[in-house]
Design a protein around this nucleic acid. Sequence first.
DNA 1: TGTACATCAGTGAACGCGCGTTCACTGATGTAC
DNA 2: TGTACATCAGTGAACGCGCGTTCACTGATGTAC
Lengths: 199, 199
Amino acid sequence: MSATSYHHGDLRNALLEAARDVLEEKGLLGFSLRETAKRAGVTASAPKHHFTDTRGLLTALSALAFRELADELAAADQVDGSRAERIVAQGRAYLSFSVRRRSLFELMWQADRLDLADPELLEQKSRAFRVLDDRVRGDSAPLLDDGDPRMAATFTRWSIVHGFAHLTIEGSFGTDPTAAQATATALLSAALGFIVDDA
Amino acid sequence: MSATSYHHGDLRNALLEAARDVLEEKGLLGFSLRETAKRAGVTASAPKHHFTDTRGLLTALSALAFRELADELAAADQVDGSRAERIVAQGRAYLSFSVRRRSLFELMWQADRLDLADPELLEQKSRAFRVLDDRVRGDSAPLLDDGDPRMAATFTRWSIVHGFAHLTIEGSFGTDPTAAQATATALLSAALGFIVDDA
DNA sequence: TGTACATCAGTGAACGCGCGTTCACTGATGTAC
DNA sequence: TGTACATCAGTGAACGCGCGTTCACTGATGTAC
């Protein structure tokens, strides 16, 4: 791979990185494939060889984001302590990710702009969920077994954490992101403390 | 107001209704001012006399939506029962609104597309919050007194309900809206049961 | 009650913009023999 | 080892589209006298 080569060599990854930049800078509303190609130093028609369309690119980016989220949740789970403490640590990590990667986090839940049937996206999303779900950790059980009542606790914790994350980045806890995150983190810890049955 | 009149007579409201339709049909991503004007039977430049731009129209629509949400929450709160039961009833109403008015609900949290400083929007949003906050119901206390620790419980309940709503419409509880809503409602009731201190 | 006139709320044609996409092409790479 | 050729991964010009917005205009309404 040479910088001056006609062939880029790693355009797929370069486009994903450029897309992250554009997303961070312009927000989801201002995102465009043309701008992304331009940032990657390539013409507007080049991306076609790697992603069928904008949806495909955003879907791949979203899968990558879910992978990062899963990694951060897994790292947080390594904390020493009780099950309750590990769950709280994961919640904080989730919240931190949502604030730090705001636009990316928003993208991850925009069904409109993603191909929800994409295998890689499904895989990474379910991996993140499986990390959250301490009950089945390490397990390769399929995600979302609707009939399984044991899923309830995980869904509930997920909803709580997700609700705090969403309201935080949306500004409902104040417009200063750092302060809002601090407020949300404190409340989240307390709420999870109520919920988690630390047997 | 005559149907054939040169002057519409109530174009502002007609545009808001048309915008709702467009939003419901095309989603937030496919929304446009031109299409809205067309549905209202008016040329593309007519809306300028009532809303400065698309953001202004969407902001007004969002304020209207918060008003509806507040009304539905208030109605749900009229249920006979304990404080805990009233809180659960509000949670169900919140969830129901989010599913029934999906695109509108999504719009309400899109900071990108709204003028968050708009007085009417702020007013209706804080009214909805005040209904949720049973502690200050009927009170005209200002919203979001950050230093007030008594706010914590309300924020927490709000986050839980909001998290369930968001994950429900996003499809995390399954792709069938009715089933997803049923699942979320059941889990939500249980979660609020844990949280609410029914003294 | 009638008239003059200002203001308000629309029309409709036109403009420029950035977008995704197409198409014929070309340079670089990989492979068969 | 060298050559021919297929395939891959780009270029760059062009296209049509829907968008928000502008501008000069006009019909309807409201008001002063």
